[in-house]
Design a binder for these strands. Structure first.
Lengths: 223, 223
DNA sequence: AGATTCATTTTGACTAATCAAAATAACCGT
DNA sequence: ACGGTTATTTTGATTAGTCAAAATGAATCT
């Protein structure tokens, strides 16, 4: 059985490789940063994960999941996102507080509980942040969305995902009506100043940094 | 924050001390056995728990929880039993499979989740095995019940608790209508042979060893 | 191409938790 | 009170995971 440390390494390698180019190696530096360990620790761990056949380690270049490693990582990610969904939908917890909770629970629940949770929640496709939940068969939707930093302006949009897990940011997004499901419109964008202005249907305009806007994924909606 | 190993030691010390005489020391041997470690390991850990002020260690005699240790232990036990209740009542899992699951989850859920689970379940007083759930204020009901090995014969009884966590035994109990809530009657008891016979309302009699009968706690019912 | 910079790996050391086996203390019966 | 049995503690080692800091290799920039 994989320890929760191992599960965490695999999960973060998966997340980083989804973020990067397809088939690319995940560099050790990024991995170490994601796991909040010093680089040397990540290297040590990479060697043992490679010995266990869970990752491929190209020394001095980076790591990549094997098929088996990916299987384990997807299972952990599925647990994480279903647990988050459970905590918000059933226990009515705030979506901004749910991440650290799921971070621990994802290593504690069995596949049996996972399946029952999935059924209880009605086999949801995404978690409360809009992050896709890997299917039981290990399929992870990779639909690519525009962000408030890149989308067309003036058109009505629906927020589909918020790719940040810090409570601060999530709180901010909720307060300003930018949670998944919300409808907004980009009223202005100034690349030089690094500013995006958005407007909710009947609200006053709100200014966001490009960095923040880039974390809000949207899809056009028939207006 | 206490590690899950620490939480486990404290929980088992609590369970063993509840089982024994009030105020008695829990011997190291029993503790080591309960935790499935060699005695030397339990001694080492006892020293560090004592240093942390969680237990009192009387070398060569045994251990006892301090007020703080008891507080932590009760919190863990509360999590364990509420999780079991959740798994059975909400996720519809079998009561015989739920113990090992809760054994991991009890260390992974926060007090926040604990409280919400408690509310969701309607503040239950006992878990599916009939074991009392410590209150949020740290009160643990210590009601003392007769067992099928010690109760009056011929009278109608209600099963209130089954003090075993092995899936085999729980399965057996359920198959034979001896889960909490069931009504039974002791039709015979032979101390010499170590046998107890019980009968369900409309069922055929069932023979149990005294050891097994001692694990089924019952209360008289107006009949 | 050569030197500098930056990421990565190595090395040595540490903590938590464990075991095996030797040493020691407590208890119990005569 | 003595000797033997049994429980407990000590001692020495092991494993997983980590850090700090030195060593090394890759990449970049004139």
């Amino acid at each position: 059985m994989a320890t929760s440390t191992v599960e965490n390494y695999l999960k973060h390698i998966l997340l980083l490789s989804e973020a990067g180019a397809a088939g690319a190696l995940v560099p050790m530096g990024g991995l170490a940063a994601a796991l909040a360990v010093v680089p040397g620790t990540a290297t040590t761990m990479a060697k043992s994960l490679a010995d266990a056949g869970l990752i491929e380690h190209r020394p001095r270049h980076g790591v990549r999941l094997t098929a088996e490693g990916r299987r384990v990582a997807l299972n952990v990610l599925r647990k994480h996102r279903l647990v988050e969904t459970f905590l918000v939908n059933v226990l009515k917890m705030d979506w901004s507080t749910v991440h650290p909770e799921a971070e621990r629970l994802e290593h504690a629940i069995s596949d049996e509980v996972l399946d029952r949770l999935d059924a209880l929640l009605g086999h949801p496709a995404t978690d409360p942040h809009g992050d896709p939940i890997p299917s039981a068969q290990g399929k992870l939707s990779t639909e690519v969305h525009a962000t408030l930093a890149t989308c067309a302006t003036a058109r009505p949009l629906r927020v589909v995902r918020v790719t940040e897990q810090s409570a601060e940011f999530l709180h901010f997004a909720e307060k300003n009506g930018l949670a998944p499901g919300a409808t907004v419109r980009v009223t202005g964008r100034n690349l030089t100043a690094g500013l995006v202005t958005v407007k909710k249907n009947a609200g006053r305009p709100l200014a966001l940094s490009l960095a923040a806007a880039g974390k809000i994924l949207v899809t056009p909606v028939r207006g």
